[in-house]
Amino acid sequence: MQLLAPTRAEEAIAALLDGPEGRVAVLAGGTDLLLDLDEGKSSPEVLLSLHRLPWRELTWEAERLEIGATLPLAQLEQDPELARRIPGLHEAVGAIGGVALRHQATLGGNLVRASPVSDLIPILLALECEVGLLGSGGERSLPLEQFLLGPRRTALQRGELVRRVWVPALPSAFRWQRVRPANDVSQISVAVAFAPKEERWRIATAGVAPLARRAKAAEAILRGPSPGEEAIAAAGASAAEEAEVRQDRRATDAYRRHLLRTLVLRAIRAVATGVGGQPA
């Protein structure tokens, strides 16, 4: 196996295109891919490491945050503005692992791996992020919902890399349930965001379907920045009903459905009242 660590974007793209198709694995934080290598689930000929690329931006624009694909989550979490401007993302990053893992893992890696149990994907879906994809012909951008095709499947084309993510700064909240509260895989997680200009609520869930997804019927029930308890309850019920719910060793479908309703209510209320933070 060959390890490539280019310092320039063009070299990285060229390495992708020059390498044998399907035999080049892209290495970002490595928290997932290296386990696959150990277990023999992946045996690429070329390992393309992105660690030397200058892709660690963290830039606040007027109404959104640009995050470079290889920025470690710990640096995102430490941004002094994040908790105030995008509380849901701050909560989601804070729910991941211990300090060392957060210094390792990246947002880009998380999106490309498209793991069914990612705690970041639901909040990024609810915030309607845009993903910047860099290829030999330049950079294109895609709404995250279109980027994610299914578990472990994305719209990345041959010769493309995730370059950055734009995250709208919106009132938002992230709620999750785990067998062990700290450093565990969530049984389900729920993200809610409110877009004041459009007066639109957005709800996304993970751990329920094969991949995180939006709960659009539930969203449509909510109106205005302070929906009443009745509407919130109806949205929770709708989210629990519409989802195709899976069952595995972490939770039964019945419990997941119950959690879905409960956590959707909690996340909406948190956004509506401007109260952030999963209660300790």
Partner: peptide, 24 residues
């Protein structure tokens, strides 16, 4: 420990065998 009908251990690792952390 979680065992399936073939007596295979389903969670042979710290990801799904949850020992307490300092926060628990």
């Amino acid at each position: 420990t979680l065992w399936n009908a073939s007596a295979e251990l389903q969670n042979p690792g710290l990801l799904d065998y949850r020992v307490p952390t300092i926060l628990e």
